[in-house]
Each structure stands twice: as structure tokens, then as C-alpha cells.
Design a protein around this nucleic acid. Structure first.
Length: 220
DNA sequence: CACGAGGTGCGTCACCCGTA
DNA sequence: TACGGGTGACGCACCTCGTG
């Protein structure tokens, strides 16, 4: 499965296999080399040209990565390709938007790899707390409990309906806010992806040009 | 400085869809 | 099947910027 394939959820192991080189936003991120038997850290002196080239490509991607705020995870495979791992969205799957990537909660771990989790995390960083202000338990049943054996008065029904409406509006307000926030992050995510792919495209074009030059010189 | 156009965020409604 | 969450659509308020 391609790490950029948004159609399937990623598992940790599958994603790991597809992304031998992994970079993320933290400094000194450990780079896992293709055979997983050796590893180095960004900034270490590469032992051979291949490793140096990988680090060059990786550094380029990393620079892009560090220059924007969205914090997507980016992987670099051993052929130098930069892959955009679906954003480090800690909240949502964004499955509502056409063509949207599967947003998994990716966590950089201490051993240099990363974990891709289906945990949606702490989606309610405060906003949802308002939901608890008005507990359903304080609703009609409570009014009825106040006068066992008798029906609620029209006024009680009106108040109950009004209270329910207020609760619904409040929840919907929060939901709309959250929905807009997610949409903005999604758009930002896509913009970051464009930046990464453009950079990758540029790198590949330059590489192709260099190879063509080498080939031309050999055939002369 | 007043005014209109365009952009942005918000609240609400209506609808869809998953779930109990 | 009722209920609740997610989201598109709409209208409104506010802000910014260009123009006369």
C-alpha cells in the first residue's frame, strides 16, 4: 500500500514497511534506513554517497515541512521520493471531503519510528465541555418527578421544549465551529501537500536533467 | 472620508446518516 | 424508528481595501 494512498487506513507495521525513511517535526529525528538494520540521526555524517543523497532529499523535504505549521508527517523512501503521510491531524478523519486522506493520529515515538493510531484523540479541547452544562437528566423526567402521578403543565412543557431547543442550538453551534475548524485544517493540509509535491517534482526534474547530462557526456 | 465589493466567521436551519 | 452528530447552505455582521 502506498503511504500516500488515502483509501485505506494505515496500520503501524504496514506503514512502517512503506516508509523506510521517516522524518517528522522534532529535531534530531532518527532516520530508519531501508533495511532497518542500521540507523542514523539527521545531522550525522553520512557514510556513503547514497546516504548523503538521501539526507539531502530528506533535508529538503524537512525544510518545507518545518516552514509550515500544519505538521504533516513526511516520509522519504530510499529512491528519494518524498511522500506525504496524511496530516498529523489529531482529531478527525476528514472522510467527509471528496478525496480526503485518511487522517490517522501519528505519534513520533522515542525509538525513531512512529505510531499510526486510529485513536481520534482529544477532539474536544474545551469546546464540548459546554455540553455538560445542561444535562439531559434535568429534563422532562425531572419535571415529572416533581409531581408524581400527574402530567406536566403546559408551562412546563413549553419550558422543556425551550430548554431542549437551546441545548440543541448550543450543540449545533459547537458542531458548526468544529466543522469549520476541521475544514480549515483540511485545506491547510492540502496546501502543504501541494508544497511538498511541488518540491518533489522540482527535485525529480533536476535529477532527470543531471542524469541526461551524464548520459550525453558518456555517449560523446 | 464615505461607500461599495470582497473576504471571513458565526449562528441557524435542513438534511443525511449511523446507531441504539 | 427515534435520536443525535456532521455538514452544506443561507443570511448576517464585521473587517479590509480600493476608489471617487
Amino acid at each position: 500500500m502506498d503511504a500516500g494512498d488515502a483509501s485505506q487506513p494505515m496500520t503501524q507495521s504496514a506503514e512502517y514497511e512503506q516508509s523506510p525513511l521517516v522524518i517528522c517535526k522534532e529535531e534530531n529525528t532518527k532516520v530508519v534506513l531501508p533495511d532497518s538494520s542500521t540507523s542514523t540521526h539527521l545531522g550525522d555524517s553520512p557514510n556513503d554517497e547514497d546516504a548523503k543523497q538521501k539526507l539531502d532529499v530528506e533535508t529538503s523535504a524537512r525544510n518545507i515541512f518545518n516552514n509550515n505549521n500544519a505538521g504533516p508527517f513526511i516520509s522519504v523512501n530510499h529512491s528519494g521520493g518524498v511522500q506525504f503521510i496524511p496530516c498529523q491531524q489529531r482529531y478527525d478523519t476528514f472522510t467527509s471531503w471528496p478525496g480526503s486522506p485518511i487522517m490517522q493520529y501519528a505519534v513520533h515515538s522515542s525509538n525513531g519510528t512512529y505510531i499510526v493510531s486510529e485513536d481520534k484523540g482529544q477532539a474536544t479541547t474545551g469546546g464540548m465541555s459546554g455540553y455538560q452544562v445542561s444535562s439531559p437528566a434535568s429534563g422532562l423526567s425531572q419535571a415529572m418527578d416533581g409531581s408524581p402521578g400527574s402530567l406536566p403543565s403546559p408551562q412546563q412543557l413549553t419550558e422543556e421544549a425551550s430548554r431542549k431547543r437551546e441545548l440543541r442550538l448550543m450543540k449545533n453551534r459547537e458542531a458548526a465551529r468544529e466543522c469549520r475548524r476541521k475544514k480549515k485544517e483540511y485545506v491547510k493540509c492540502l496546501e502543504n501537500r501541494v508544497a511538498v509535491l511541488e518540491k518533489q517534482n522540482k527535485t525529480l526534474i533536476e535529477e532527470l536533467k543531471a542524469l541526461k547530462d551524464i548520459y550525453c557526456h558518456k555517449t560523446e
